[in-house]
């Protein structure tokens, strides 16, 4: 009965019903198609570009987009499009593998700590709190600075930097599942703690972990690009979107395409992943149906 609530009602009735719902569906489809495209790049780069990402061409440096090259060329005459296509595989590798590492270790710490409770849980969680106080990028920076610059180490560093986030969220989830009645019922019937953990607590924590993991892939790709931009990460031979942004930095005034297209790509990829992650969350939460 206040103006405000009338306003929301109006929104609810017209805007949400006729606009947002199909709009949401369109977003999900677009995000899915985009993700499929990038996965295609990573799997079969040769199908999407005839060029060689490392072929230097001194005769075609700094060409603008659509001047014989779809997205232009960089200062060494390499096709930006080809570089983006070939950069997809390392980018997705970093995103997926580091999420897997961080997700598995973090979830394990969180779920076991939350389910068992007690002083171990206390200690681990205080440690996690300290790590959480640092942003993920900074954490990854610390680790990568201490390790030799290879792709594997980059994955490891980014993965470890994701551990505290997973641990925190999954501990909360495990605590909540632990207090549910079916866990008490299984305890009373005499089921072993280990069995309860594997058969009841873990499956009921899985859905949020998967959603969190999906969203984390985007974050991991951004962190990887940021590290590469800063010149950290795999030194030679590995193409990276972040490295591309970095190398185009000096030319941004006149030859904007070198940095802009990889930046745009990373942004779109993160948006696509998070749209799909949100959709996944909706699908996996039975209560919101």
């Amino acid at each position: 009965m206040t103006a405000d609530s009338i306003g929301t009602r109006w929104l609810n009735r017209s805007a949400l019903r006729t606009w947002r719902v199909p709009h949401g569906r369109v977003m999900v489809v677009l995000a899915g198609l985009f993700l499929l495209l990038v996965i295609g790049w990573a799997a079969f780069p040769g199908l999407f570009t005839g060029g060689n990402p490392t072929a230097v061409n001194p005769l075609a440096t700094l060409r603008a987009p659509l001047q014989g090259y779809l997205l232009g060329t960089d200062q060494y005459g390499r096709s930006v499009y080809t570089e983006l296509v070939y950069g997809a595989r390392p980018a997705l590798e970093v995103g997926l593998l580091s999420t897997l590492i961080g997700g598995v270790i973090g979830s394990a710490i969180g779920v076991v700590g939350g389910y068992l409770g007690g002083w171990v849980d206390m200690l681990v969680m205080r440690l996690i709190d300290i790590l959480l106080a640092l942003p993920g990028l900074f954490l990854a920076l610390i680790f990568i600075a201490a390790l030799p610059p290879t792709l594997e180490n980059e994955i490891l560093a980014i993965g470890i930097s994701a551990v505290p986030g997973f641990a925190r969220v999954m501990r909360g989830q495990a605590l909540q599942v632990r207090s549910r009645l079916f866990v008490a019922a299984a305890t009373v019937v005499g089921v072993r703690r280990r069995v309860i953990l594997w058969r009841h607590v873990v499956p009921n924590c899985a859905a949020p972990a998967i959603v969190l993991g999906t969203l984390n892939i985007g974050t991991a790709i951004v962190i990887a690009a940021s590290l590469n931009f800063l010149g950290l990460g795999p030194s030679a031979g590995v193409l990276s979107w972040g490295g591309l942004i970095s190398s185009g930095q000096g030319y941004i005034d006149h030859d904007w395409w070198i940095s802009t297209f990889p930046g745009l790509l990373v942004t779109l990829l993160v948006i696509a992943v998070s749209v799909l992650g949100d959709r996944l969350r909706d699908a996996m939460e039975p209560s919101s149906a």
């Binding site: 079916f182 008490a184 009373v188």
Partner: peptide, 19 residues
Amino acid sequence: RKDMQAIFQDPLGSLDPRA
């Protein structure tokens, strides 16, 4: 524990939804 069992108020809550 096998000798002492329980039946709770909320039958849905006392069954694991995924089993």
